[in-house]
Simulated assay, not measured.
Amino acid sequence: MTTDNTTHFGFKQVAVDEKVKLVRGVFDSVAEQYDIMNDLMSLGIHRIWKRIAVQLSNVRKGEHVLDLAGGTGDLTTLFHERVGSDGQVVLADINAQMLRTGRDRLIDRGLAANIRYAQVNAECLPFADNTFDCVCIAFGLRNVTDKDAALRSMYRVLKPGGRVIVLEFSHPTDKVTEKVYDFYSFNILPKIGRFVAKDEESYRYLAESIRMHPKQAELKQMMENAGLERCEYFNMTQGIVAVHRGYKI
């Protein structure tokens, strides 16, 4: 729940202006082990989720893409393959350490061409109106303090005919999956974080932040409220993850 002065940080209520600092601390802590932890947490399935999200974006050669909360650059790499030499991808993140890690890894892969980097807050994007053919935010919207403001900002920088793609952990569609997922999230995941990333609390926060994220239908409505049209979502892995897509008409 978000009020005028407070918002949630996991299951805790904190001051609105404090959340950005707390989230920054989480990702500063896990940046170097982020990719390894993603593989361990999802048994590698996150790579499939990301490829499906990119396919649903319908990004084509020559287009311009904004990869928000792009972190270590997995989606930027996939978008780079699609837009080709005539297109451009902007890897953006609010966290300097994550952005630095992503930039270094993309350069190491020889993918410096046609990729720009920007440290930005999704709630107030510093780009002109109608700039991008696609704006994607993967596993990042749940960490944004004002999600409605972020969706409006994404809509503003999107070209007419462009797409917003939100790939995010969501809510299981059946009770059995929900119970198994809850046990894993609150009993196993923090222990993996402790042993691999040396940070149990950050991964406990990640589990809590997923539970506080809007359910699929609610997020779809939020996207429509931001001005996006033809909004729809696609559940994956029994709703543990969902891809939401909306268009600027």
Rank of each mutant, 00 (worst) to 15 (best):
R152T: 06
V89N: 01
A96T: 13
D129V: 13
R109D: 08
L158H: 06
M154A: 12
S85R: 15
S85I: 12
G161C: 02
T131A: 13
G161A: 06
T101K: 06
K147T: 07
K159L: 05
I94C: 11
C134G: 00
E123I: 03
P126G: 14
G162H: 11
V90E: 13
A96M: 14
V164G: 04
G140H: 04
L158M: 10
R100K: 15
V144L: 10
Y117D: 09
D108F: 15
D146V: 09
D86A: 14
L106F: 03
Q88Y: 11
L125W: 05
A149D: 06
R163N: 14
Q88V: 11
G102W: 03
D104R: 07
R100F: 14
N114A: 11
D104Y: 03
F127W: 10
N143H: 02
L106I: 00
N121S: 05
L125V: 01
G87T: 10
V157L: 02
I165Q: 01
R152P: 05
V164H: 02
M154Q: 12
P160Y: 08
A118L: 12
G162K: 08
V144I: 11
L141V: 00
R103Y: 13
N143M: 01
D86T: 15
G162F: 08
P126C: 12
N114F: 08
R142P: 04
A128L: 14
I165W: 00
L141Y: 04
Q119R: 08
A150C: 10
D93E: 08
V157T: 03
V120H: 13
L99Q: 02
S85G: 13
G87C: 10
I115K: 07
Q97K: 05
Q119V: 09
A138D: 01
L158Q: 11
L111P: 00
D133L: 08
L141G: 03
E123D: 01
D146W: 06
I165H: 01
K147N: 13
M154H: 10
I137C: 12
R103L: 05
L151F: 09
L158W: 00
V90Q: 09
I165C: 00
N130R: 14
A150L: 07
D104L: 11
V144K: 11
C134M: 05
R163K: 14
L106W: 00
V89D: 01
L151M: 14
C136M: 07
C124S: 15
L158I: 12
K147H: 12
R105V: 00
M98K: 08
N130K: 14
L99T: 01
I115W: 04
M154V: 07
R156A: 02
V135P: 03
K147I: 07
C134L: 03
S85K: 15
D86I: 13
A128V: 14
F127S: 07
A113N: 13
A122N: 07
A150K: 04
I94P: 08
I107G: 02
S153T: 07
R156F: 01
A118D: 10
I165R: 05
M154Y: 11
